[in-house]
Write a protein that binds this DNA or RNA. Structure first.
Length: 103
DNA sequence: CTAATGACCATTA
DNA sequence: ATAATGGCCATTA
């Protein structure tokens, strides 16, 4: 399976998300020089459901968990396992959003 | 090559 | 406040 540079970039970013934190698609897109590639980012993850990647830590900018190729239930479960509180498929962004060094 | 799709985002009614 | 629409990027058919 061949991964393009875009995919690699996405994985690289997702891989850097610390445990117990989440990042939004738009945020990742911004880190890779494509602030509007949020869609492509999600697309990439969807096409490559790699169990070794923390794709479950990637959520929408609205705080909504978004979707998951394996079923959002599984995604929500993983997030909960990380210690994140997910209610109704919604996560508290101000609390769990990945901030590169707040302060 | 062109067209269509998608785990999205932001704006406008 | 919620609902609906367009735009944007990369990948796949």
């Amino acid at each position: 399976m061949k991964l393009t540079k875009f995919q690699k970039s996405v994985y690289t970013i997702v891989r850097q998300i610390p445990c117990g934190k989440v990042a939004t698609y738009g945020m990742i897109a911004r880190m890779m020089d494509s602030p509007a590639a949020s869609r492509a980012v999600g697309n990439a993850l969807n096409r490559n459901t790699s169990p070794q990647i923390f794709c479950h830590r990637v959520i929408r900018s609205d705080g909504f968990v978004g979707g998951f190729n394996r079923g959002m239930s599984q995604k929500a479960t993983m997030l909960r396992n990380e210690g994140i509180v997910v209610r109704g498929g919604i996560i508290d962004l101000d609390q769990y959003i990945w901030k590169k060094s707040l302060k």
